[in-house]
């Protein structure tokens, strides 16, 4: 198996699924001739033609709205939003239309669209190229929200999202696009939606994280090992519906949980995960559930490094839980 980057794995998933199913189309700004500003759709235009690899005008309402109509009429559209920071113009289409089509029509119409969007910080992109909007979509009934952190998961989850019957917000941690590399199965490769991954097993504390924070968590866990503590790192991969079984089993065993994400703290997904843990693992808990998050400020440009959680901040929260 060849070693590939996360962005290449996304590209591979799109190409593989498009070759397998002629109803799969991609659409968005610069996705065709250019191959996407991050090159996620590179080569697809030449291979599958302009009818299936659609360079759209610059309008996110149009992109998502059109994708909804395409899905209603039998296609499997994968819409790209150039950066998740620009998804907000399409918020109404996503929340009121795409997410609700099945429910409001009692299953007569569905909008199984995949909306891909690079998200998160770490590229010196400032407020408008760095946000992590997952909580908005997790809060929305009817959406599946996915965020992979490895090339293999990116490929397998994207393929599952495309084949699935529900609308999916597929957030790609752009900081990891070219910084992680691993062997990825060639050809068809599926990772199930709704199943988490134990990144690293451990016994004393469960560290739950996703996206670009997974490598940060791994580093923190390594440092904890040096201090004599064994930390289990869980990446849910599908943020919603969450693999609560995996988290529950882990926390019931370790008795301690810390949640790590780069999105702002208040009403961040960490808050929901913390609530679920205390509802389900209360009698096993030896310490309060901890959170390490971005701050409740706009995403700062110059102070990005201090805004984003790093291994040191994570380790402090891990120590606090262990020493409680």
């Amino acid at each position: 198996m060849p070693e590939v980057t996360l962005i290449k794995a996304v590209n591979d998933a799109l190409a593989t699924e498009m070759a397998r199913d002629p109803s799969v189309c991609v659409l968005g700004e610069d996705v065709g001739r250019e191959g996407g500003v991050f090159r996620a759709t590179e080569g697809l235009f030449r291979r599958f033609g302009q009818e299936r690899v659609i360079d759209t005008p610059l309008n996110e309402v149009g992109i998502v709205g059109m994708a909804i109509g395409m899905a209603m009429n039998g296609l499997r559209p994968v819409a790209e939003i150039e950066f998740s920071d620009f998804i907000y113009p399409a918020f109404d289409q996503i929340v009121s239309e795409m997410a609700k089509m099945r429910y409001r029509s009692a299953g007569q119409f569905t909008a199984a669209v995949v909306v891909r969007a690079p998200s998160g910080g770490g590229i010196k992109g400032g407020h408008y190229h760095s946000q992590s909007p997952e909580a908005y979509f997790i809060h929305t009934a009817g959406l599946v929200v996915v965020m992979p952190s490895t090339p293999s998961d990116a490929k397998g989850l994207l393929a599952s999202a495309i084949r699935g019957e529900d609308p999916v917000i597929f957030l790609e941690p752009k900081a990891l696009y070219r910084t992680v590399k691993e062997e990825v199965p060639q050809g068809e490769h599926l990772v199930p939606i709704g199943k988490g991954r134990i990144v690293r097993p451990g016994d004393d504390l469960t560290l739950i994280t996703w996206g670009a924070m997974v490598p940060v968590a791994e580093k923190a866990a390594e440092s904890a090992t040096a201090e004599g503590a064994s930390v289990e790192v869980i990446d849910p991969r599908t943020l919603w519906p969450l693999d609560i079984g995996m988290i529950e089993a882990s926390v019931n065993r370790t008795g301690r949980a810390v949640i790590l994400h780069e999105a702002p703290r208040t009403c961040g997904f960490g808050a929901e995960v913390a609530a679920l843990i205390q509802e389900r693992c209360f009698l096993h808990l030896k310490s309060p559930v901890g959170r390490v998050t971005g701050f409740d400020t706009p995403f700062p440009y110059a102070l990005e490094k201090s805004y984003l959680p790093d291994p040191e901040r994570t380790l402090r929260a891990v120590r606090a839980a262990l020493e409680f």
Binding site: E51, A67, G69, N73, P77
Partner: peptide
């Protein structure tokens, strides 16, 4: 909000 959906359905028909 239904207007962009009409576009997509028309596009699918064309494809």
């Amino acid at each position: 909000t239904q207007l962009p959906h009409a576009v997509g359905a028309a596009y699918a028909a064309k494809v």
